[in-house]
Structure formats: structure tokens, C-alpha cells
Computed example of a mutant assay.
Amino acid sequence: MKLFKNFLFLHLFAVLFILGCGSDDNQTSGPATPPTEQDPTFTNPLLPSGPDPWVVHHGNFYYYTHTLGNRIGIYRTQYISQLSKASPVTVWTPPSTGPYSKNIWAPEIHRLNNKWYIYFAADDGDDANHRMYVLENTNENPLAGTWTFKGKISDPTDLWAIDGSVFTHEDQMYFIWSGWRTASSSNSGNQQIYIARMSNPWTIEGERVMISQPTYNWERNGLVNEGPEVIKNKDGKVFMVFSASGCWTDHYALGMLTLKDNGNPMNPTDWVKTATPVLSTKGENNAYGPGHNGFFKSPDGTEDWIIYHANMASGQGCGNNRSPRIQKITWNADGTPHFGEPVKVGTKISRPSGEIK
């Protein structure tokens, strides 16, 4: 009997040890593949909290991140609808002091020129000092290798900047972000979208150009344009979806700019703004202030999806109550994307094509 008790004790200890190891935030391996016999549906939100969500697909995995504030973490999963089964891995922690030590906002991970890059906004504890910064990793797996700090990415004005992203059009790389017109902190809450050419993934080349500012009433509840992200249709036509109005309001919504055929991204008049939001608050669906989006393909590449955050209730503002949601995009006959309305929380949605084998 004593031997049997010892066996049970050792068996229990081994199980607890394994479980304990699996919860390590610094693990470098991705989550285990879920069983093949799975529910073909999922429900939003993907996580209970996840402001400023971003996801990219590479190889057999999706790499997801969102604002954590004091560090940058990445989730790795084969199936984005099953994100809650993954665990974040901290890949970069800022220094304790200095210009990029605090308020780490809206990181984005991109695969460029066979390397990984993370773009993020940070400051020294004073929001007026927010600027954009870049990390680089040469490893095939962004959860492994070394993330090297490449420095600040800025145009010659070196003014307040957040929500940086990149896209390529006709073999030219562009940096897009939300910024202030001048250095004065009185610009706080008054943001525009800027664009500049890039000479490499961590360097802006030349002057910035403003391509969008709050003009319609639905953009002016806080005078904010931020979070610009590009999606292209099957013919390569360029659409830039951005967040408008203050995130501290329920009016926060997604707007869209369309680049004219044969247009120059650096020419503001070649961008045409849609007169109404493309995704906005739907209270009965527990989607208040939907915004700060990204785009991704289904595993088999046949579907386009949007990821965005929203609050469950009115008045929850810009905090950690914002949760990540995903839904499929359809395409109108004229080639423009159709986003519909935020899917009601708890509604069963068919998983992205290719998740179920």
C-alpha cells in the first residue's frame, strides 16, 4: 500500500510539473495542434481582452499580438479562431527608463524581406513624446532568435506618431501612421493620417504627406483619424481602412480611403474617402466602438477576414475592456470590400476556410 501511495504521489507530481511548465509566459514553442474533430464554428470575442489586435499568417501559423502596455507579446496558433487556446510569449521588454520605456501601444508584426519586423509606439511616460520604433528578427520563427532594436522610425519632422503600419504598392514600400500637425501637446485628440516612402523596413525616405483628417461628422467626436491598414482586392486595388473619432467614445468607427486607379499614394487627392463609416457601433450586438483593425487570409487563402476590437458595453472607452473579434469580409460587384456590421457576441460563425481538415 505504501508503494502504491508513493506511485500516486509521484504520478501527481509529474502531472503538476508538466502543467506548470506549460503556463510559462516565456515559452518559445507554439500551442499544441487542437484535435481534428472540432466544432466547425466559433464565437466572438476571441479573447476577453485585447486592445489594438493584429495578426499575420506565415507558414502554418498565425502570429497575433495586441497592446500590453509594458512589453510586447506574441501568440502563435495554427487556427486563429482558436486563439484562446494559445498563450502569449514575451518577445521584447523595454528598458526601465528612456524615450521608449513606457506606454507600448499597438504593436504590429510584419514579414518583410525574409525577416520579421515589429512596429510599435512608445514614450517616456509623457504621451506628447509618443514616437514609432522598430524591432528586427532574422529567425524564421519570431518566437525564437533575437529581436534587435533598430531604432526610431520617423520623417524629418519627428512629430508625435502612433499606429504605424507598412504596405507595398508597385514595388515601393510605404509607412502609414497617425500623427499631429505640430509639436504642441494641444494637438492631443486631434490626429491625422500620414504617409511616407520607405528606403528599407526601418527607414523613412523623404517628407511625410497628410492623406486624411477628420472631415465628416462621424469622424469628429474627438477629431481623430488613426490605425490605418491597407487591404487590396484580387485586382490589386488599394483600400485603406482607418479608425475615426476618439476611442474614448462609442462613436469610434472604421472609415475607408480608396486609392484611385493609377493613383499615387503620396498624392492626397488620389485618396477618396467613403462618406459613411464601413463598420460602426451596434449596441444590441455588444459591439461598442469597433475599430483598430487588421486583415488576414483564411488558412487556405480563399477568404479575407478582418480583426478588430470593440467594447461589450457603452462607455467603456479605451481600456482593456476592448476585446478582439474577427469576421469574414465579402466583396461588392464594384470590387470594394463589404464589412457588414459587427457580428453579435456569442453568435456561432463558420471558422475560416481550411481550419477544419
Rank of each mutant, 00 (worst) to 15 (best):
L135M: 11
G145T: 08
I193Q: 02
Q192T: 01
Q213T: 04
S165Y: 04
G222W: 00
Q191G: 02
Y174W: 10
W160G: 00
S154T: 11
A196Q: 07
H169A: 12
L143D: 02
W202M: 10
I153C: 06
I162Y: 00
M210W: 01
T215R: 14
N225E: 01
N217M: 12
L135W: 02
S186N: 15
E136W: 12
S186T: 15
G151I: 14
A161E: 01
W218I: 12
I153Y: 01
P214G: 10
W202F: 14
E170C: 13
M173Y: 03
R181Y: 01
V209A: 11
Q172C: 05
E140S: 14
A196H: 08
Q213Y: 05
I176R: 10
I195P: 05
Y174M: 12
Y174E: 02
P201C: 07
G222R: 01
V209E: 07
R197T: 13
E219D: 09
M198R: 06
W218Q: 13
S154G: 08
P142E: 07
N139V: 12
M198F: 03
I153G: 03
T138M: 05
T215Y: 12
T148G: 07
W177D: 02
T157A: 15
K150C: 15
K232N: 04
N187Q: 15
I176N: 07
H169D: 11
Y216T: 09
T203P: 09
F175I: 09
K152S: 10
M210Q: 04
Q213W: 02
A196K: 09
N187M: 13
T182Q: 12
I211Y: 11
N221L: 04
A183I: 05
Q191K: 01
F149K: 12
D163W: 00
H169V: 13
Y194D: 01
R197A: 15
V166K: 08
V224P: 03
T168R: 08
A161D: 00
F167K: 12
I204G: 00
P214S: 11
D171A: 13
N137F: 04
N139F: 09
E136Q: 15
R197V: 07
A183Q: 10
W218H: 11
T203Y: 07
V230G: 06
T146V: 13
A161T: 01
Y174C: 13
A196I: 04
E219L: 14
T182G: 09
I162C: 03
Y194N: 04
K150V: 10
I195Y: 06
N137V: 03
N137R: 08
E207G: 06
F149V: 09
S212M: 05
I176E: 03
S178F: 03
L143E: 04
W147S: 08
T148M: 11
S186D: 15
E140Y: 05
I153P: 06
R220Y: 00
S178L: 00
T203F: 11
S199Y: 04
E229P: 00
I162V: 09
M173S: 08
T148H: 11
T148P: 06
I153E: 02
G179K: 01
W180C: 07
Y174P: 12
M173L: 10
